[in-house]
Design a protein around this nucleic acid. Structure first.
Lengths: 225, 225
DNA sequence: TCAAAAGTGTTAGATTTACACCCATGA
DNA sequence: TCATGGGTGTAAATCTAACACTTTTGA
């Protein structure tokens, strides 16, 4: 292989992941205490350096898999962070992704093994380097996306109640919505289908369980929450 | 300085700029024939490798300045592109920005010097590497942004007519809008102020010139086009 | 005098918001 | 029997979309 660009200098590139989950009516992310210097012991996002033979998306998938043991996680790039001194160790450009998972899918053993915790986005401690900025941007982007694309289902179990879905929207967008109006809008979305299963875990009466129908969505993908 | 991350490998990082302009009722971008190998002679975005001592934003500003001679250009990051083989020369991660300029501000001599041309986004030739993908994404992001933030003014002269503004929206969003409805919406935006100047270059009767009042926008920044 | 762009209001329809009560059940 | 969360409809207000003619002026 010929090298064309040898006069230019190279830089370390890492991938940092903001993993969103929804639990106890709160939007949360996974953070842990940093296990390496510099910044050992500080709260931090989970990340890793990219390898020679993998794309950015592949690196993000690898990092997500390392941490959670899960594959095919919904994931979006947030952007690249490149201040010269953003990392106290050495210059590192970080490409940030956010991911959405159902907290129930993430094994508690693995969580403990990696020393990460679900913390509500509204109650985050100061994080390592510019990680708080990353989270703020990712959260904003996710808010916008969730109102135009059916990504909320990645944060919920396959079967969910309308109240769960509503609480999720409220947690993500940070404002309460009217129950009747919310349900009216959901009814107009043909890709959210009612099953005839009932969830009785959260009320005596029981609530209908719904599910996302991807095929129906692809046929008529219009919605605006 | 201690090196903390020496076991990880580094990679070339470039910055590519999608420079939008508005001319003859079309949204256009600056592209040129590539002057280096590999890909010499192919149509391409303008870009450059980042330096050790500059942030990504600074690199983008530098590249924009090199090309246009302009400072303080409105600029937004689009994201990082990182497929392993995206560049036929060597692995390069590219961080993409879009920028908005008023075509009149860009000296034609400089254009010729750099061999770049304004080409309508709807009539782009195949570009080097993944540059077409970059443009498509940048265009989409800009479309969304222009409907929520007053960035259109960066593509127009300080003083502009409502017809110019309308044509710009139509060009960016790719659909015609109703003249009366458009003007009604503009009237509700207090930060677009009418001057008592008249532009007679595009009609016998003359059209009122308007200007963006940034201060007024910061006081009451609500709009949705 | 006429061609060409500027400018201007109204109305019907669609969408959004606000709002309160009954239901089913297990403890 | 009662406390708890589940489920439902209507009306007013707002917003959106469709639509056509008059004005000005330079050539």
């Amino acid at each position: 292989m010929t090298t064309y660009y040898e006069e230019y200098s190279k830089v370390l590139v890492s991938v940092d992941c903001i993993i969103f989950g929804f639990d106890k009516d709160e939007l949360r992310i996974l953070i842990g205490k940093r296990k390496m210097d510099p910044g050992r012991g500080q709260w931090s996002l989970y990340g890793g350096f990219i390898h020679d033979n993998e794309s950015l998306d592949e690196a993000a998938n690898r990092v997500l898999y390392e941490l959670t043991g899960l594959r095919n996680i919904y994931m979006q790039q947030v952007g690249a962070f490149g201040k010269v001194d953003r990392d106290p160790g050495e210059r590192v450009i970080s490409v940030v992704y956010y991911a959405l998972i159902n907290v129930k899918d993430y094994d508690v053993k693995l969580q403990e093994l990696h020393g990460v915790k679900w913390i509500a986005v509204n109650e985050l401690p100061p994080l390592y380097s510019d990680h708080n900025t990353m989270v703020a941007l990712a959260h904003k982007m996710m808010q916008q996306k969730i109102s135009r694309e059916p990504i909320s289902f990645n944060l919920l179990p396959t079967l969910f109640t309308l109240t769960q879905l509503q609480r999720l929207y409220e947690a993500v967008c940070g404002e309460k919505v009217d129950k009747r109006n919310f349900r009216k809008r959901i009814k107009d979305m043909d890709f959210i289908e009612k099953t005839n299963l009932i969830d009785k875990t959260s009320s005596r009466r029981g609530a209908c369980l719904y599910r996302f129908n991807e095929r129906a969505y692809n046929n008529a993908p219009n919605f605006k929450l």
